[in-house]
Design a protein around this nucleic acid. Structure first.
Length: 1146
RNA sequence: GGGCGAUUAGCUCAGUUGGCUAGAGCGCAUCCUUGACGUGGAUGAGGUCACAGGUUCGAGUCCUGUAUCGCCCACCA
């Protein structure tokens, strides 16, 4: 095999192997193929950036599973795709535009306001970014060897997924599970957008507590002369106060509940309400809140989330006096304003100070003015400095303002009226027939706290022994006719089931609207009208006339001024609505409407028949427009298991979905979802709810159509950097897997990642740099920003002073750019050495096997004359196959990797190959066994290390086309990716041979130890004799050659009565005394034997102690006591022998 | 504030129903350029399993508490 280099060079192998897989469409799955279906959906990576090692881990594990099941003969599909990641992507693109001093979001917003299509232009920019990163991500996946069906790749905003989003939204809307409501959002007053919670940075700020006095008044408004003192960090929001709260358990203050106060400046009358949210003051308390509290809490529902809750708990009381619960006192730029939700009848009664001084001022200015006003009027009791954390916008870095706005919601705890009322679930108030109820009922009962495991539902579970024996036929998790969604969702590790359960038990309605441009625009049209009250009655007729038949209309119940919502389902209806909106609708508010007719018509719809209607509709003053917001990214991700399979109508997309027929039936549910724990709530939960809800259009509780999106959820560790910080894009400490592929190879990376995957939460991965000038690896310099340790943006080469480079952190944070003089340094990590070394070891083992087998191929026949080593390695192989099956079926990747490592390196290379090296040419059996072991090793390792095994398979096929032993079939396959997983039955486990071989190993180790100690050159052959009890001596005599080869000794006498030659060094191991002739060195001897005496003495003491403990003898299991006795006897015998040897030396 | 996890050899980590004389890889020390592999081979040193109690014949493993680090969720008048 001269063409195989002596070290494995991944870069020479990987591209060709990948090409071979892709050319042969080895990853493509079709519904009608043979084998039970098996499917995994990729958690679609965000198109915000390229993948990092966290993704590499996630995808490696999925690939291990998919490749394993494909080899088990199952019809395996791994569905790839990417997520549009609304907020994240929009922000990343905007930031990049800003960095490059190009027109950015604020500029496009201006364009949009001027009616110049800014929205479309900006979305095009994001689309370009998406195209770039989607391609990069796909390339990375391929280079990692991920066996995704790339012909089926989806994107959460492509037409197929968009159709699913529309259908899902419409169904929910029709069922009354989508509604519109007000809510406080995190508002960034500078960029004037709402922010997601995770876009809010908490920062410690030096602020103050102000103690402000509100006068108590009688019903008729006269002041009593008394006052209450509220404590606040935000005095300016007092303008929007609609109540004052005290704790009803507060003995000093509860008497004031029901009294009234007059709000200074505004002159609004507020009720004092009792609410146990209020902290009672306690100057001595360690609780900061209690320490600063006054006992009176000002309630500002429109400007504080907690106050919002309190406000609505006391809605009636507040309405009686303050009239309005919600009073918004700010404009979108956070300046004081009476025009954004502050009713006229309320602010009219305010002091002139409000209009003359406050209105139009910023929050900060207003704060000062309000405080001064209170001071001037002797209503400021105290000011105390206070350091607290305040949410800041991560984009504009100003404090976020809780700001009231209209949002769309999915009602997750409302009963689904298509399902019969089944009451509420135990322990919770969640109705069983709600979305959250469905999710809770889907949990495996044995993983669910408070569930009655014994009641009705059978838990399929897994029989580990059965899986180990025969993984080809894994136990099906479902019984015929069972309601599939009752109790089969299973988490690995099981602790994550609790996270899932708690989340659903305390779940709140899901806000699905986002004030963004990048995403699925909410498919709802808002109609507002005024003056012509008949219009509302006529409008449905217009819709009918326009052909918008398949629609749902919702009219806000309370007031005619509120909008009226229409959602349509089919494309034709939707286009008609859009047409009406664009040509007939006149905006009541300042929204842009400059769209071209061609845009609609370009989609192939003809609306000439609507022109007359449009004119008629346009007569009254009304406003019809599609909602400006987009859907939460998770809305489309929640549909991933359905949309990727073409739901609801795959036949609509013949070009986008190959072999669309039966896609859903075949691969929904999928088998396992493989993900990190951070999105159990955000994503897993919602997929479960949606898949159950949408998989059966009738939601018939007796049907078996309701399907889970997946049965198993495997949650793997998060990769942290060397400092224990999460590896993430936003932190800029992510490592590109391609860097590791450069330094170590894809297989090495994959093997190491699998090897790291235990059931723990986090794994740490220290990162080094590769100097682009010299190629050497060094530890980078770090800096600290925002409390995080990150690589300094630029680094100096440690051994080429003056040569500089930039780091990926420097580039991703926009601080530096790579250039010829300062190239980008790739990352690497010595963590991956284990994988690289292992790949190299495998390479060389197979290389060796191929040379020898090439000279004299193994026989094919049945009459094989096995030697001990042959039987031993086959037994080890059988155990390894079992261990691999068992581990992989339980998602224990580390155990699988470790088993492979031990078998290939320790058993096969260190012992078996060394044992048979010399007589491979003479013994056909050894050749057959070696070929078998190599073949099986490649198969077993293929899921973890696909490239190298595929390459070696090619060579193995060329040189040894016929492999396998009698009754151990290894069916041939041209490509390994499609080969069968080895089946080595338990009949190959040979305990007698294992014991015999272990005895040999023990003796060889002892002999080597003595040799090393006496510094015998490795090549020098030493005569050795041994004294051992007859049975053992007999075994040894049968295998003297084996010992001779492995320890490089010449065996002489073996027997129960062998004497120690006077010039021999002695070693005692178990019941065997080993004499290595010609090595006498009393000093060394004495030292070693004395040490052994010490070890044995302490062991004997310990064992004797245990046995002299009556409780142990009586209470411990009998076999353990027996074992202890045997151990003691053995230790005593050995101790005696050692002492004898020691005395003989004296 | 609620929940979860970690703490085992210099480093990174195993240790799944308590039976352990606590393992691996890297690193370290000594030796070996032996025809598969120096990304290798042989041998060795290195740990009171974070701390304090408890349960048990027996605790790295179970329970309680403490400390430190990390993550998730909620929130900070």
């Amino acid at each position: 095999m001269s063409e195989l280099p002596t070290t494995y060079r991944p870069a020479d192998v990987e591209p060709a192997v990948l090409e071979r897989w892709l050319d042969s469409r080895a990853f493509h799955a079709v519904p009608d193929a043979d084998g039970e279906s098996y499917a995994i959906l990729i958690p679609p990576p965000n198109v915000t950036a390229a993948l990092h090692l966290g993704h590499a881990l996630n995808n490696t594990l999925q690939d291990v599973l998919v490749r394993h099941h494909r080899m088990l003969g199952r019809n395996a599909l791994w569905m790839p795709g990417t997520d549009h990641a609304g907020i994240a992507t929009q922000t990343v693109v905007d930031r990049r535009l800003q960095q490059e001093a190009e027109p950015s979001l604020t500029d496009y917003k201006q364009l949009e306001e001027q009616g110049q299509g800014g929205r479309e232009q900006f979305v095009a920019k994001v689309q370009a970014w998406k195209d770039e990163y989607e391609a990069a991500i796909t390339d990375q996946l391929k280079r990692m060897g991920c066996s995704c069906d790339y012909e089926r790749q989806r994107f959460t905003m492509d037409p197929v997924c968009a159709a699913a989003v529309r259908e899902a939204f419409f169904q929910l809307f029709k069922d009354g599970l989508i509604y519109r409501g007000k809510r406080l959002v995190n508002w960034d007053p500078v960029t004037q957008t709402a922010l997601a919670d995770d876009e809010v940075e908490m920062r410690e700020v030096d602020g103050a507590f102000w103690y402000m006095k509100y006068p108590i008044v009688e019903r008729d408004g006269t002041e009593t002369g008394e006052h209450v003192t509220v404590a606040t960090t935000r005095p300016e929001t007092m303008l929007g106060d609609t109540a004052v709260a005290v704790n009803p358990g507060d003995p000093e203050r509860k008497g004031l509940i029901g009294k009234l106060v007059r709000l200074p400046i505004v002159n609004r009358v507020l009720p004092i309400v009792g609410d146990d949210y209020v902290t009672m003051p306690d100057a001595e308390s360690s609780d900061v809140k209690a320490k600063y509290a006054s006992g009176f809490l000002k309630v500002t529902p429109a400007h504080d989330p907690n106050d919002y809750e309190i406000g609505f708990r006391h809605e009636r009381t507040i309405s009686e006096t303050a009239r309005h619960v919600l009073i918004n006192v700010m404009a979108p730029d956070a300046s004081i304003s009476t025009r954004h939700g502050w009713p006229e009848d309320d602010h009219a009664q305010a002091d002139d100070f409000l209009r003359d001084e406050l209105v139009g001022k910023s929050r900060e200015a207003a704060r000062k003015l309000v405080v001064d006003w209170f001071k001037r009027h002797d209503l400021l009791e105290d000011t105390r400095p206070y350091r607290h954390s305040v949410g800041h916008s991560y984009r504009s870095h100003v404090p976020v303002e809780p700001y009231l706005s209209d949002q769309w919601y999915v009602a997750v705890t409302a009963p689904i009226n298509r399902l019969p009322d089944q009451g509420t679930l135990e322990r919770t108030k969640v109705p069983a027939n709600s979305l959250a109820g469905l999710a809770l009922r889907a949990m495996a009962p044995d993983q669910k706290a408070g569930a009655d495991v014994g009641d009705g539902v059978t838990i399929p579970g897994r029989d580990r022994a059965a899986v180990a024996e025969d993984p080809d036929k894994p136990l099906k998790p479902l019984g015929v006719g069972e309601k599939v969604w009752e109790g089969h969702l299973r988490f690995y590790p099981s602790r994550y089931a609790r996270t899932f359960q708690h989340w659903h038990e305390g779940i709140r309605d899901w806000c699905i609207s986002r004030q963004l441009w990048w995403g699925h625009r909410i498919p709802v049209y808002l109609l507002a009208f005024s003056e012509d009250s008949d219009f509302l009655e006529r409008f449905p007729k217009y819709l009918d006339a326009a052909g918008v038949t398949d629609r749902v209309e919702i009219r806000a119940p309370d007031t005619t001024a509120e909008p009226y919502y229409v959602a349509s389902l089919d494309a034709e209806s939707d286009a008609a609505l859009e047409y009406l909106a664009r040509f007939a609708g006149k905006p009541l508010v300042d929204t842009p409407m400059a769209h071209s007719r061609s845009l609609v018509e370009a989609r192939g719809h003809d609306f000439s028949h609507l022109e007359g209607l449009a004119k008629e509709v346009a007569q009254p003053i009304f406003y019809l427009e599609q909602d400006l917001d987009v859907l939460d990214t998770w809305f489309s991700s929640a549909l991933w298991p359905l949309s990727t399979m073409g739901w609801p109508r795959p036949e609509d997309f013949p070009d986008a979905i190959p072999e669309a027929d039966k896609l859903l039936e075949t691969w929904n549910p999928t088998n396992v979802l493989c993900t990190a724990r951070e999105i159990i709530t955000l994503w897993v939960s919602r997929m479960v709810m949606f898949n159950l809800y949408f998989s059966d259009p009738d939601l018939d509780p007796r049907s078996t159509k309701q399907r889970l999106p997946f049965y198993d959820v495997f949650v793997h560790a998060m990769i942290q950097d060397g400092h224990g910080q999460k590896m993430s894009k936003s932190l800029g400490n992510g490592v590109d897997p391609v860097d590791i592929i450069h330094s170590h190879g894809a297989d090495a990376m994959r093997f190491t990642l699998a090897h790291m995957t235990t059931h723990t939460q986090d794994v740490r991965l220290p990162v080094d740099l590769v100097c682009p000038h010299t190629g050497e690896i060094f530890e980078p310099k770090y800096i600290t920003t925002n409390g995080y340790k990150v690589m300094a943006p630029t680094q100096e080469s440690p051994h080429a002073p003056g040569s500089r480079m930039v780091t990926s952190y420097g580039v991703s944070s926009g601080q530096v750019q790579a250039s010829d003089a300062m190239p980008l340094a790739r990352n690497t990590s010595s963590k991956f050495d284990i994988g690289r070394n292992f790949a190299n070891k495998l390479w060389n083992a197979v290389r060796f096997a191929l040379t020898r087998l090439g000279e004299a191929p193994p026989p094919g026949g049945a009459d094989v004359d096995y030697a001990l080593a042959d039987r031993w390695i086959l037994s080890r192989l059988a155990r390894t196959v079992r261990l691999a099956n068992e581990s992989l079926s339980e998602y224990e990747f580390s155990r699988y990797a470790q088993a492979m490592y031990d078998f290939v390196w320790r058993d096969l290379c260190d012992w078996y190959i060394e044992a048979v090296k010399a007589d491979l040419n003479d013994r056909p059996a050894a050749r057959a066994v070696l070929a078998t072991c190599v073949d099986a090793s490649l198969r077993l390792l293929h899921p973890a290390m696909p490239f190298i095994t595929e390459k070696l398979w090619e060579h193995l096929n060329a040189i040894v086309p016929e492999r396998g032993l009698d009754q151990l079939e290894l069916p041939g396959s041209e490509v390994l990716v499609r080969a069968r997983w080895p089946h080595v039955g338990r009949e190959w486990i040979d305990e007698a041979s294992e014991r015999s071989f272990e005895l040999i190993q023990q003796i060889v180790a002892a002999a080597r130890q003595v040799r090393t100690e006496h510094t015998v050159p490795p090549r020098q052959v030493v005569d050795v004799s041994a004294k051992a009890p007859p049975a053992i001596a007999q075994q040894l005599l049968e295998h003297t050659e084996l010992v001779g080869v492995l320890a490089n000794v010449t065996p002489r006498e073996v027997g129960p009565r062998v004497d120690r030659p006077s010039d021999a060094a002695a070693a005692v191991t178990g019941d065997i005394e080993l004499y290595l002739h010609g090595l006498i060195d009393p000093e060394l001897e004495r030292g070693r034997l004395a040490k052994r005496v010490e070890e044995l003495t302490s062991q004997v003491d310990r064992l004797q102690g245990r046995l002299s403990n009556e409780n142990y003898v009586s209470k411990a299991p009998a076999h353990l006591v027996e074992q202890t006795r045997n151990q003691l006897a053995a230790a005593q015998r050995e101790l005696e022998a050692v002492q004898e040897q020691l005395e003989a030396l004296a």
